[in-house]
């Protein structure tokens, strides 16, 4: 019997398992390769957009359908403090060369942590309805709030 372990949207696949063997012989478990080719170089030195992700990497998947509200990014106010980058739970803030470039809407779940930690006034990230167009959202951006005198 061949080791067909599962079927999914890619059709029936054999995953790692050789022939099924006796109970006292070790069989290889399921191995999911993150990359199409074995990586010779250290992955930490390759930028995500240049990596050869395989279909098994969740980088190629999306959780966009989880969102009902989404963060919208306003480049004009941003000071590149990277607070949103360090606290994003979903690796969805795209920062390259110390600059915030935008939001990865494939992986963002719309939790709103980035908006909470944004220190600018007004905030450079705000939550809008998922259906809102980015241009319309930017047009609605609030004015700078004055500090209340105590």
């Amino acid at each position: 019997m061949k080791g067909v372990l599962a079927t999914d949207r890619r059709g029936i696949r054999e995953l790692g398992a050789e022939e099924l063997v006796g109970w006292d012989e070790v069989t290889q478990g399921v191995i999911l390769e993150s990359f199409e080719v074995p990586m010779e170089e250290n992955v930490a030195h390759i930028r995500p957009e240049e990596r050869p992700y395989s279909d098994f990497s969740s980088y190629t998947a999306t959780v966009a359908s989880w969102r009902v509200i989404k963060p919208v990014y306003n480049r004009d106010i941003c000071i590149d403090c990277q607070n949103c980058w360090v606290w994003c739970p979903d690796t969805s803030i795209i920062s390259r060369d110390k600059q915030m470039l935008g939001i990865d809407y494939d992986h963002c779940k719309g939790c709103g942590v980035c908006v909470e930690v944004c220190p600018t006034n007004p905030k450079s990230l705000l939550m809008f309805s998922e259906a809102e167009e980015p241009e319309a959202a930017l047009a609605k951006w609030p004015e700078k709030k004055k500090k209340e005198k105590k």
Partner: peptide
């Protein structure tokens, strides 16, 4: 944080942890 943010991520998005976990 700016220096720290130049690190290349090795933990990918689209995992299924709750939003805000």
């Amino acid at each position: 944080l700016k220096e720290f943010s130049t690190a290349n991520e090795r933990f990918e998005g689209a995992h299924l942890l709750c939003p805000g976990c």
